[in-house]
């Protein structure tokens, strides 16, 4: 009998290796469940979950919603665009109003780093961080590592390069924490202007040359260029970015080994990767999406197990 060491999933940084292994082990079982004819189990039928999205999202929100429904939880959805947040309500007021409707868990995406942690300290519900600004996106990192494990058999000793906009990316930070905790080696690659200062303090090397990075790695995780977070120009043009840091089939085939290509989505086809790469057998982009549901079911199940009624 095992349990998570945390009461909320705020980030990978405060998880232990054993927590990640427990989540993976539980996700294996949920992956079997979601491939059955009846893809639903009754575990969380007395739990209500609020999905609070203060920032746009398609796949993460759908993935969480599906995971909740597969576990038989009741769900309510909230997006900031159509809410009273626009009328000036504070975050705690908004959430407390929702909790007054007897909600047990909150899945939240918010543009401000630390929003999930702030909430966990101020309200009485289990919090799952679905992305807080450029800070962390823990479930994405878990599903990425889980997908690597599924494809390569193991993560220990594997070499993973994260390519693109590391500076604005919560996916990159959570991925670095997660992969390092379970024994993988991580490098980052991309334009110098999109690298955070002190990235080496995390034990991550910077490789400015894409070709060298790809030759080194087993897996390349191609991050999306987040134009919405870039208020100044970090590179001259998208065309130049894709020439320097985009992966096409020619480049992939010229390597002396078959590396695995990942992308957290949504893909800017022709920018980070070309269509023939995205649709090739080396890409596991759609496996990542499928595993996302299983991973989120595991996280919700394990956290809900800590709610005493």
């Amino acid at each position: 009998m095992k349990t998570l060491s945390v009461d909320h999933l705020l980030g990978i940084k405060n998880l232990h290796k054993e927590d990640i292994e427990l989540i993976f082990q539980t996700a294996d079982n949920f992956k079997e469940v979601i491939n059955r004819p009846i893809k639903k189990v009754p575990s969380l039928r007395d739990i209500t979950i609020a999905n609070l999205f203060f920032e746009n999202s398609t796949r993460t929100r759908l993935s969480f919603e599906l995971a909740e429904k597969r576990l038989s939880a009741d769900t309510i959805n909230f997006s900031a665009a159509s809410s009273s947040v626009k009328k000036g309500e504070t975050l705690i007021d908004t959430v407390n109003n929702i909790l007054a409707m007897k909600v047990d868990m909150v899945v939240m995406r918010h543009p401000n780093p630390g929003a999930a942690e702030f909430l966990s300290k101020n309200i009485d519900a289990r919090i799952v961080n679905a992305g807080d600004g450029a800070h962390e996106h823990p479930t994405q990192a878990l599903l990425d590592a889980y997908s690597i494990k599924e494809r390569l058999g193991d993560v220990v000793g594997k070499k993973i390069v994260i390519v693109g906009d590391i500076l604005h990316s919560r996916v990159a930070l959570s991925n670095i924490f997660c992969l390092q905790k379970i024994g993988a080696e991580v490098k980052v690659c991309g334009p110098n202007t999109l690298m955070p200062k002190y990235i080496d303090a995390l034990g991550v090397a910077y490789e400015p040359d894409l070709r060298k990075a790809l030759e080194w790695c087993d897996v390349a995780n191609m991050l999306r260029i987040q134009l919405e977070r870039q208020d100044i120009n970090f590179f001259p043009s998208l065309r130049e970015y894709s020439m320097m840091y985009g992966v096409d089939k020619k480049l992939l085939d010229s390597l002396d080994k078959k590396i695995t290509i990942m992308h957290p989505g949504p893909i800017n086809r022709g920018v980070e990767i070309t269509s023939d790469v995205a649709d090739s057998k080396q890409a596991i982009i759609l496996d990542q999406v499928e595993n996302g549901v299983a991973i989120r079911m595991a996280v919700l199940y394990l956290l809900a197990g800590k709610i005493k009624k």
């Binding site: 009998m1 427990l22 199940y301 394990l302 197990g305």
Partner: peptide, 11 residues
């Protein structure tokens, strides 16, 4: 589920 101290790990 949730009446036990720890959730059971599934097989």
């Amino acid at each position: 589920f949730r009446r036990r101290k720890n959730p059971l790990v599934p097989s």
